[in-house]
Design a protein around this nucleic acid. Sequence first.
DNA 1: TTGCGTCTACGAAGCTCTTCGTATATAACT
DNA 2: AGTTATATACGAAGAGCTTCGTAGACGCAA
Lengths: 130, 130
Amino acid sequence: MTARRGPPLPTGAELEILGVLWTRGPSTVRDVRVALGRGQDTAYTTVLKLLQIMHAKGLVSREKSSRTHIYAAAEPSERTQRRLVDDLALRAFGGSAARLALRALSSRPARGAELAAVRALLARLDRERT
Amino acid sequence: MTARRGPPLPTGAELEILGVLWTRGPSTVRDVRVALGRGQDTAYTTVLKLLQIMHAKGLVSREKSSRTHIYAAAEPSERTQRRLVDDLALRAFGGSAARLALRALSSRPARGAELAAVRALLARLDRERT
DNA sequence: TTGCGTCTACGAAGCTCTTCGTATATAACT
DNA sequence: AGTTATATACGAAGAGCTTCGTAGACGCAA
């Protein structure tokens, strides 16, 4: 139970970088730094160091292209997001992801399209129940 | 926007203590320590220090009963949970709590009663839509 | 009143996370 | 060959989190 395969959960700054890699695809340190959109507020070596740590943790893979490294998220966003949700469910909702979902839906005005997606999922769960 | 009133988000250990206070109601340090269920693995002063820090942060209130303090969660669980969910939505789901909910529901086999609650909520949202 | 059990307060160690500066390598250009 | 631009690697500082030991206060029983 809770075998927890895969890399550890990303920290705050790591998650922000993963977000860039998920939307941009494989990127260089420079690419990531630009995409973070902080201008010069974050030093180049800060992003580099983070990616090196993430590589050591198994959160990203990297490949050498001539002299620069190209980094990519090790897991698809879905899997990491699921692990993050499960973690929060465990820590704050007694392990119930459904109660977490309930709280998420009741908290904010969601857009219609997104609610429709939730309804579709519920319908599918119904169908698969039997 | 994102005005973030109220105390800061609880950390891991703080959240565990809040869980105890939410289910047990106002409790002494000793009560909390016992309810954590770690036996002697955690020192008394560790729980005390945490509660002192949480009091300074505004996460818990306390009241003096003779010589001991009685601690209580400053916010109801619903509010803190909502803030935690909103935080995760912001950091990992582009700010969309609905997409977070979708991931939560698709990740795990939920119990029927919980799914029913989600359906009821969606129905209510429908009704309020107009 | 002296001592024992229990409480609070405080300081500090060990750890992780985030940040950056410095040193070093390497390709490219003159 | 020497200079410049850009890369990586590494060390370390500063902050926050978690843990605990020690010291001091307070009530209660002998």
